[in-house]
Amino acid sequence: MQDFTQKVTGNSSTNCTINHSIHQTLSPTIYILVFGVGLPANCLSLYYGYLQIRAKNELGIYLCNLTIADLFYIFSLPFWLQYVLQHDNWTYDANLCKICGILLYENIYISVGFLCCISIDRYLAVVHPFRFYQFRTIKAAVVVSIIIWGKEILMSWFVFKHADISMDAESHIICFEHYPIKDWEHNINYYRFFGGFLFPFFLLLFSYCGILRVVRKSHGTQKKTKIQIKRLVSSTVIIFLVCFGPYHILLVIRSLFENSCMFAEKIFNIYHFSLLLTSFNCVADPVLYCFSSESTYQNFVKMRDSGLTCLRCLRTKTQVSYQLKTLETLRKSNSVPAVEEPDLIIHHYYKQS
């Protein structure tokens, strides 16, 4: 630890005195919530994506990659939790800091990339069902996934080489952040805003507007179903904007105006609040892109019914062990009442083959 501190002192330091109170109050709560909800939800999402891959559905490739990216970030949350609870003082290895920082930031753009893939896949399936079929195959999905991961790995390597550990005025080792931001970060932030947020957002908007236009003109679609589709698409776009919009806008603001500690101190709380909002993407992804699909919802119902059946079997065995029953009584106790499936919340154009 002493060598690590000496290395930090020799590399970089900052005289900015930042109030990190948001990290001792709001951040731990958000990290614990996202970890507790996001971990099981994404594990189920990974299983559902696997089922879709088995069904030769290219959408399963994108869902699995999206889930893996979310899980990588979720696994880094315990380190960030300890970091903020120790008043923004990194006590682990410097390389581990860089890795956790890359998992935090690059998860945003890997997620955005696969969200765009999902929206384009749905757009092609609904708007051009008999064209561009070659782009809606397992092989094409694998190639696109490799390109997305490769691009982000190269970007991560660039950030890994340039990012260093700094020390604040209180001798706390700051992980993956600089106040004020450094010169090399400006171009990265502009790229993140235009290439990592704005362009994908317009692509997402174009895809779902095309889907809504086709559904609105469809005479065979019930009014109730059209309303459900509109709500689902609207929720997707709104969550995208809420999770990623504030953070990227503040990235540009920091790059344009943050040239002193005074500005960094003023924007610190709102900037880190926007960064916390990006964490909720790990919870929203399984809900919007996995649990809302018809096939995965039916699988969930089957799992639920199987679990209820097992519980009934266990209950029956327990009752048999405590009391002697006639043959007629046993026959009645083993009968399982029919379970009425609820209305499916997904719509016809999201139905997975």
Rank of each mutant, 00 (worst) to 15 (best):
Q6N: 10
G210A: 02
R54G: 01
R304P: 05
F79D: 00
Y73S: 11
R192K: 12
I120T: 04
S353L: 08
I173V: 06
L59T: 07
Y48P: 04
N19I: 13
V142Y: 13
S234W: 11
D88V: 01
T67Q: 12
Q2R: 14
L212R: 10
F197Q: 06
V301L: 15
G10Y: 04
W80I: 00
V233E: 11
V336H: 11
K217F: 13
S255G: 06
G113N: 14
G60H: 05
I181F: 09
I249E: 01
N281V: 08
Y350M: 11
N334V: 07
A69V: 12
I120Q: 03
E265H: 00
T225N: 04
F257K: 06
C310Y: 01
E328I: 11
K56I: 02
H248D: 07
T5G: 03
F300P: 05
Q134M: 09
D183C: 02
I108N: 06
P342Q: 10
G49D: 14
I74S: 03
V336I: 15
S145V: 04
N57V: 00
P78A: 00
I227P: 11
Q86R: 01
S292E: 03
I153D: 13
K217Q: 12
I108L: 09
R54K: 14
C175E: 02
S13F: 07
I110E: 09
K56W: 03
S234M: 11
Y62L: 04
E177N: 10
D164A: 06
V242I: 14
Q222D: 11
F35G: 04
T5R: 12
L85W: 01
I249P: 00
N281G: 11
C209D: 02
L85N: 03
K56Y: 01
I249G: 06
K98R: 14
S333F: 01
F160Y: 15
I188Q: 10
A169W: 00
C16F: 02
H347G: 06
I165E: 15
V242K: 04
S119D: 05
I108W: 06
A338K: 09
Y350I: 09
F194D: 12
R254V: 02
N107M: 09
I253Q: 01
W80R: 00
C290Q: 00
D183K: 03
Y350W: 06
G307T: 15
E58M: 02
L251Y: 08
H128L: 03
I68P: 08
T9A: 08
F193C: 13
C116P: 04
I18M: 13
D70V: 11
N95K: 09
A169R: 00
Y350E: 08
F75K: 04
T236G: 15
T296R: 01
L277D: 12
H172K: 15
H248Y: 07
E185K: 05
Y247A: 03
R54C: 05
D70N: 10
I153W: 10
L124A: 04
Y48M: 15
Y247N: 05
S255I: 01
V214D: 03
L66E: 10
L103Y: 08
L66A: 13
V144I: 12
V215Q: 14
D70T: 10
L256S: 05
F130G: 01
N89P: 00
V283N: 02
T67L: 06
H172W: 12
